[in-house]
């Protein structure tokens, strides 16, 4: 059942409010750069990282959307969001960047069981 070499990185923090999102994505990118397979799950505040309308705000702020756009280049194609998170934030899937898969919230427990390693950020 367990996919030994797959890692699930869970993003749970919004862009700009802290560095947790960016440094979490860095772990996903490094995993992929080392040839590992990685899926990203966006939970709670983390879903805000996927809003396609994001852009640079205050001068000197580093945007996270370019990193999200870079994921595909690293073959990180599995971007997952539970339906309940979208509902809770009143966000519809057409407000999100391309390539996001909306999953039923009831699938979360089995999703967590499936991966050999899970890192929560």
């Amino acid at each position: 059942m367990t996919r030994e070499n797959e890692r699930l990185v869970v993003i749970r923090h919004a862009p700009y409010s802290s560095n947790q999102l960016r440094e979490g994505l860095d772990v996903a990118l490094v995993t992929a750069a080392f040839g590992g397979s990685v899926s990203l799950l966006f939970l709670g505040q983390g879903v805000l990282a996927l809003l396609k309308e994001q852009t640079v705000g205050a001068p000197g702020q580093k945007a996270t959307l370019p990193t999200i756009d870079m994921l595909e280049m690293y073959d990180i194609e599995n971007l997952l969001v539970p339906a309940e998170t979208l509902q809770a934030f009143n966000i519809t899937s057409d407000q999100l960047v391309e390539g996001v898969t909306v999953i039923p919230t009831s699938e979360l427990p089995s999703l967590f069981q499936r991966y050999a390693s899970v890192l929560n950020f």
């Binding site: 772990v27 490094v30 080392f34 390693s117």
Partner: peptide, 20 residues
Amino acid sequence: TGLGQLLELQQRCDRFMTFA
């Protein structure tokens, strides 16, 4: 050290835990 070390540590250990 780099983040590669983190991934390597997680792979090598029987138990891996986060404190944050």
